[in-house]
Simulated assay, not measured.
Amino acid sequence: MTTAAFWDKAAEKYAKDPISDMESYTQTLDIMKDLLQPQHRVLEIGCGTGSTALELAPQVDRYIGTDISSNMVEIATEKLADTNLDHLSFQVAQAHDLPGTGHDVVLALNLLHLVENMGETLGSIYDALPSGGIFISKSALLGEGSWYLGPMIALMRAVGKAPFVARFSEAELIRMMEHAGFTITQTIKQDGMAPRLFVVAQKP
């Protein structure tokens, strides 16, 4: 099963499931709301069904959300129809295939651990931003998670119940971002079965 097919199949359930850790989600959402400015043009890759985009879009100039799953994008677009956010749009795209130009901020929330081509994805994000542009991400640190997560995910993936998931630690993720050229300006580590690392980075 391809990655897109997996998320297409999961989209309806994903849209209905509540956020598992609302406190952590709210913490990082509030930080992003403080960072985003009215003039910012934002690109979110891996936007899922658009919940975060709908929260953040009202305070920026332009917001584009992309996802590999056409079903996810369809659900996000249906949600958008109930708003007056004319400057928000959703489209299908690969994580490393960034649409349009003129992005001041790129978001990759709960995404980087799901991409198989991390170097290419980080390079595309870096190239899409101007000097001073902001890259915000939140990633699961499977390399620091419970020992049984690796075998469990491998088994689930073998039967089509899980997507590809990369294993890396906080230090490894930071090193990959810095290798791509980013300067790290803020990190927040959130506890869990697999810790999550929220990172604010900037293109020099």
Score class of each variant (00 low, 15 high):
residue 1 M to W: 05
residue 2 T to L: 14
residue 4 A to L: 01
residue 5 A to T: 11
residue 6 F to V: 01
residue 8 D to F: 13
residue 8 D to P: 04
residue 8 D to W: 11
residue 9 K to T: 04
residue 10 A to Q: 11
residue 11 A to V: 08
residue 12 E to T: 10
residue 14 Y to P: 02
residue 17 D to Y: 06
residue 18 P to S: 10
residue 20 S to V: 00
residue 20 S to E: 07
residue 24 S to A: 15
residue 25 Y to H: 14
residue 26 T to D: 02
residue 27 Q to V: 05
residue 29 L to R: 11
residue 30 D to I: 04
residue 30 D to G: 06
residue 31 I to A: 12
residue 31 I to D: 05
residue 32 M to Q: 03
residue 34 D to A: 14
residue 35 L to N: 08
residue 37 Q to F: 03
residue 37 Q to K: 15
residue 38 P to H: 04
residue 39 Q to F: 10
residue 41 R to H: 07
residue 43 L to C: 01
residue 44 E to P: 03
residue 46 G to T: 01
residue 46 G to C: 02
residue 47 C to V: 15
residue 48 G to K: 14
residue 48 G to E: 06
residue 48 G to N: 13
residue 53 A to I: 08
residue 54 L to S: 05
residue 55 E to Y: 11
residue 56 L to Q: 00
residue 56 L to W: 00
residue 58 P to I: 08
residue 58 P to Q: 08
residue 58 P to S: 11
residue 60 V to N: 05
residue 60 V to E: 03
residue 63 Y to E: 00
residue 63 Y to I: 00
residue 65 G to Y: 07
residue 71 N to R: 14
residue 72 M to Y: 03
residue 72 M to L: 02
residue 74 E to V: 02
residue 75 I to Y: 07
residue 76 A to K: 07
residue 77 T to H: 05
residue 77 T to A: 12
residue 79 K to Y: 13
residue 79 K to I: 05
residue 79 K to L: 06
residue 80 L to N: 01
residue 80 L to F: 01
residue 81 A to H: 06
residue 82 D to M: 14
residue 83 T to N: 14
residue 83 T to L: 14
residue 85 L to K: 10
residue 85 L to H: 08
residue 86 D to W: 09
residue 86 D to S: 12
residue 88 L to M: 14
residue 89 S to N: 11
residue 91 Q to K: 13
residue 92 V to M: 05
residue 93 A to R: 00
residue 98 L to N: 00
residue 99 P to R: 13
residue 100 G to R: 01
residue 100 G to Y: 02
residue 101 T to V: 13
residue 101 T to E: 15
residue 101 T to H: 12
residue 102 G to H: 06
residue 103 H to W: 15
residue 105 V to T: 06
residue 105 V to M: 04
residue 106 V to C: 00
residue 107 L to W: 07
residue 110 N to Y: 13
residue 112 L to K: 08
residue 113 H to A: 10
residue 117 N to T: 12
residue 119 G to N: 15
residue 120 E to Y: 06
residue 123 G to W: 05
residue 125 I to G: 01
residue 127 D to G: 09
residue 130 P to F: 08
residue 131 S to L: 12
residue 131 S to I: 11
residue 131 S to V: 13
residue 132 G to H: 10
residue 133 G to A: 12
residue 135 F to H: 07
residue 136 I to G: 10
residue 138 K to C: 02
residue 140 A to D: 09
residue 142 L to R: 09
residue 144 E to I: 01
residue 145 G to M: 08
residue 146 S to R: 14
residue 147 W to M: 13
residue 149 L to F: 07
residue 150 G to C: 07
residue 150 G to N: 09
residue 152 M to P: 04
residue 155 L to T: 04
residue 155 L to F: 15
residue 155 L to D: 01
residue 155 L to P: 00
residue 158 A to I: 07
residue 166 A to E: 12
residue 170 E to N: 09
residue 171 A to G: 00
residue 171 A to C: 00
residue 171 A to D: 10
residue 172 E to R: 03
residue 173 L to S: 03
residue 174 I to A: 11
residue 178 E to H: 11
residue 184 I to H: 05
residue 185 T to W: 04
residue 186 Q to F: 06
residue 190 Q to H: 13
residue 191 D to R: 13
residue 191 D to F: 08
residue 192 G to H: 10
residue 195 P to V: 10
residue 195 P to C: 14
residue 195 P to F: 12
residue 198 F to A: 03
residue 198 F to H: 08
residue 199 V to A: 06
residue 203 K to T: 04
residue 204 P to R: 11
residue 204 P to W: 13
residue 204 P to C: 09
